[in-house]
């Protein structure tokens, strides 16, 4: 396989708590994003997926670990070099109501990153903005309007255009369709897919929604309590999930098919997600795991490649059980 375009090694994000200790939002994650791929990052609320996404573009700096992007040591960049480098990696957020300035026209919002990064004539800026708007399926007339004049789906298109206007190599999309209605969600998903194909950019797609992640991703990483527990190609992850958490997660997702739902067996997960302030020792999942053995309480399983191909799993018991 080619060299990763974005590569995190043993990355941690700890938030200091007021009274004592840290909240371990991201607790030792190694993750590679390859050129031209869509990597889905899935997990439940509080698992650290957004913190990881933000650390990957240095919206906040990781507490430890290393991060390389496009062959550069991303964490060592400072000042002007960092600002210049950032054009390569752009982000789209969940709530297009919050991420667009209500007092800027669409043209202002889209030309701002261009002016910050390049010295362009007015004409060149206009041209690039027009191109970005066209890419996301909006008409020229949109450019002089304000965000409130658009629906949620259209606003998300604008946010995507704003990320694309700099021709980034990497796009990090954090729950980009979660606030949209089903009928609009499909439009935005197809748009992201189409843009990814036509520009060849690499995308990290963060979401709690497994069905959406499955639709858009080439490869998927599953996160639990600050750690990646499994990665696999999308076919493999859903056909033969190896980690007990992945299995439980997949079995819990409702499928819009009544007959299937009546026949399905769910793997029940007992208990609640432990706190990231005080995560369990050993394997973070052992408090809820149906396969737990004594070793899990003491030792933390590493993410390891499975003999058959492109799948990695962090579990001592994975592969031993027949499902």
């Amino acid at each position: 396989m080619s060299k990763p375009i974005l590569s995190a090694q043993d990355l941690t994000v700890y938030y200091p708590l007021r009274h004592r200790g840290f909240l371990r939002a991201v607790d030792g994650v190694s993750l590679d994003l390859y050129p031209g791929e869509v990597l889905g990052l899935v997990g439940e609320s509080g698992c650290g997926k957004s913190s990881l996404g933000r650390a990957l573009i240095r919206l906040h700096d990781p507490s430890s670990g290393s991060l390389s992007a496009l062959g550069t040591d991303f964490l060592s960049l400072k000042g002007r070099k960092l600002r210049e480098f950032r054009r390569n990696i752009q982000m789209v957020f969940q709530d297009p109501y919050a991420s667009l300035n209500p007092r800027m026209t669409i043209f202002d919002a889209l030309s701002e990153p261009l002016r910050a990064h390049f010295r362009l004539t007015t004409q060149e800026v206009s041209k690039k903005v027009a191109k970005a708007l066209e890419q996301v399926g909006l008409t020229e007339q949109a450019r002089d309007k304000y965000p409130h004049e658009f629906s949620g789906g259209q606003r998300q298109r604008i946010a995507i255009a704003r990320a694309l206007v700099l021709d980034p190599k990497v796009l990090i999309a954090d729950e980009p369709v979660s606030s949209l209605d089903v009928s609009v969600q499909a439009q935005v998903l197809n748009l992201l897919k189409e843009i990814q194909k036509s520009t060849g950019l690499s995308m990290l797609f963060i979401s709690h929604n497994l069905s959406v992640v499955k639709y858009i991703s080439d490869r998927i990483a599953v996160m639990y309590l600050g750690k990646i527990v499994e990665t696999a190609n999308r076919e493999d992850l859903f056909e033969k999930p190896l980690h007990p958490y992945t299995q439980a997660l997949i079995s819990a997702v409702p499928i819009p098919d009544p007959k299937l739902e009546r026949e399905r067996k769910r793997i029940p997960l007992t208990g609640e997600l432990p706190s990231a302030e005080n995560p369990p020792l050993g394997c973070a999942f052992h408090t809820r795991c149906p396969w737990v053995v004594p070793r899990c309480l003491e030792e933390r399983p590493k993410l390891q490649a499975v003999a058959s191909g492109n799948q990695e799993v962090a579990c001592f018991e994975a592969g031993k059980k027949e499902n």
Binding site: V182, S211, K214, Y215, F238, V253, I255, D257
Partner: peptide
């Protein structure tokens, strides 16, 4: 238009 977990 709803993505499904049982389909690719």
């Amino acid at each position: 238009s709803t993505p499904r977990l049982d389909k690719l």
